[in-house]
Write a protein that binds this DNA or RNA. Sequence first.
DNA 1: ACGAGTATGTTTGCGAAAGCAACATATAGC
DNA 2: GCTATATGTTGCTTTCGCAAACATACTCGT
Lengths: 405, 405
Amino acid sequence: MDIPQPGEVRRPTIEGVRRLNLGRVLRLVHATGGVSRAVLTHETGLNRSTIAALVAELEAASLVEEQAPSVTGQVGRPSPLVAPGDRVVAIAVTPELDAVTAEVVSLGGRRLARVRREVASVPTPEETVEVTVSILEELDHALRGRLVAGIGLAVPGLVREREGLVVLAPHLGWSDEPIGQRLGAATGLSVVVSNDASLGALAESRFGAGRDVPNMVYLHGGPSGIGGGLVLGNAPLGGVDGFAGEIGHTLVVGSGRRCDCGASGHLDAEVRREELFAALGLSDAEGDRIDEALREAYEHGPSAELAELVDRDLELVAVAIANTANVLNPRLVVLGGFLSALVVVAGDRLRERVAELALPGVAASLAIEPAALGPSHIAVGAAELAFEPLLDDPLAFRFPATAVS
Amino acid sequence: MDIPQPGEVRRPTIEGVRRLNLGRVLRLVHATGGVSRAVLTHETGLNRSTIAALVAELEAASLVEEQAPSVTGQVGRPSPLVAPGDRVVAIAVTPELDAVTAEVVSLGGRRLARVRREVASVPTPEETVEVTVSILEELDHALRGRLVAGIGLAVPGLVREREGLVVLAPHLGWSDEPIGQRLGAATGLSVVVSNDASLGALAESRFGAGRDVPNMVYLHGGPSGIGGGLVLGNAPLGGVDGFAGEIGHTLVVGSGRRCDCGASGHLDAEVRREELFAALGLSDAEGDRIDEALREAYEHGPSAELAELVDRDLELVAVAIANTANVLNPRLVVLGGFLSALVVVAGDRLRERVAELALPGVAASLAIEPAALGPSHIAVGAAELAFEPLLDDPLAFRFPATAVS
DNA sequence: ACGAGTATGTTTGCGAAAGCAACATATAGC
DNA sequence: GCTATATGTTGCTTTCGCAAACATACTCGT
């Protein structure tokens, strides 16, 4: 249920080593979607015989499957492919203003099913639980015989991760909702709750633009404002309560507009999705088309109004990135949601401004990229979080009985 | 030589477990300055017999010493005290505008010797190396027979830690100086170089206000401006190059004064030590008396000019803290240098303003405290950093031959 | 002063886990 | 079909931490 905090020391007994190694192997299989045993050997630095034993143990637990070696054309005995077990899945739930969506994601990251259930009005926590349960019943056939590692719930707002508590989600109108507990009780599954942008960060870090980059900052522009997430040293940084990453609430202009949080001049208040959508003539529902629409507008020469808005947004985002980069010295900043559109049409100008605003050394090793994953990346991150306890200690993990047929 | 990055996995072999446990024990002995074997047993969760073996191994390497049990008045057989070996030391070097200081710090944190050598003009890297070598010769008697773990060099500026390279230290007039390498060659010792505020953060985290607080932000107001350091998950966060923590270069007012770094409105440009010193009638050399002087001024009622300056500084520091806290969600912010004086005279107002400016959840779990260590805490942090490789892998560590008599 | 109770140190044997070496096997290249 | 190469497989060895039994030194109560 917990995200392992960096610095939390695993019990350093001999069995602890086994658990660690099992976790490392399963993590590699999960991250790659399937690797040869030879690669596992090289990647972990462990002995051939040890890897064989570890894989056998994971296979006995149906967490991985060994498959015939693929034809590689390489010299030497072919190494069998170790693939994620297709019975193991996690469920990602995303409540939005007009719908609740649940997706079934397999170990290895394949999306097996997706059900979006529209709701008449902004869903309450109770409705979210109800709808989720109902979707799970609908998905019964797809889940029969599967091992469900848990549910990951992505909420646009402040979430106290340890307790599964939504402290404040202004756009959903939720406050102090112990939704993790409720959804857990209703489904019999273990539930992890997190901020949507933090989950986007996790997804981009593991499968997207941040692959192989250990120190990354993610900025997400969503319908409910600008959020962010941090991945430092390959681990998601949650902070004390799991609130970390709220880069939207950084001062970017003096005496600026009033922010929802009470302060003024925050990025979240100054750079608004609605404004960009209005300037482009896009409706709210066409959120996924923003990259394309903005690029088209720029190909034909943007209107003066649009150009001015983009320039202003760019400048303010540059300030926020420079501030954050000076504090964290990351290798990469990834922009997602409607912010990725800004990088697509004017990435070089953004990079230029950040280079001017950030400390020279910091700017020199900083890359700025648009998100590589599609709009469903938040679900991927939510599933990822739900898989985490399993990946940390594969054999100790107990799948809930209800989900096993 | 490297700071271990969180997420860097130690080779998980069986000998790796031993190394890890030896490190944990030595770290505990170092952090406490001496503990009973019984406490080590409870603290590590290891078996009595295991602890006995580990301590014996560390003792054989003269890293620790077992001493007669102290009279405790407790039931049961008394447990022998495990103290840091008094032969093991690190050397902290701090070049300043008008002097170079070297201190000998023993494992366990006791300061054994301190030599401050004044220089006529701001020391160049070459002079710093020369003076350090000369101080070490002077300290020869104190170092005879000791095991010197290494040198920690604290520099006010941007330091690429991995390479021991000072990228830019404006106040010393250094840029792109590979001082780590040079000082290493001149002394035959391994040298680690870091930013002074980052080292202050490390010291406060291990021995000061941040004891037992895993997530901490440190803000240091020194003669060369405002720097900072981060300790997250008990580990110092350096970022990609070791530049992380530059909270002084965060936007706190729109269209403000020009900062040395080229941007405007940064905390470092807006809150100046000189201004506070001038308002208090303090000379630059009386830096250590600032807490006292400001408190005295406030006891007698501050002048209108002073009160206005403090209020302004307070407000700007509050903005920087709120921004940083929203991004990192730490448990504690520690203010050092002249900034600690602000907390001492007006801590409650500062806390109040931060509570208004930061997100409610973030502010709720945030404490703001003045630094608990004296002005020499940067040296303590530098020694700490020099000890790090030894604490990480005690038996693999090889002391340089030159220092062993 | 002496025994009971308690916490800890010490010794010994055991089990778990990873490494290693020798052998077996499957591929590419000639 | 032979050789070189890379990998899987098997059995043995080493390291390490743990548990249990015993030894030791202290407090407390009588």
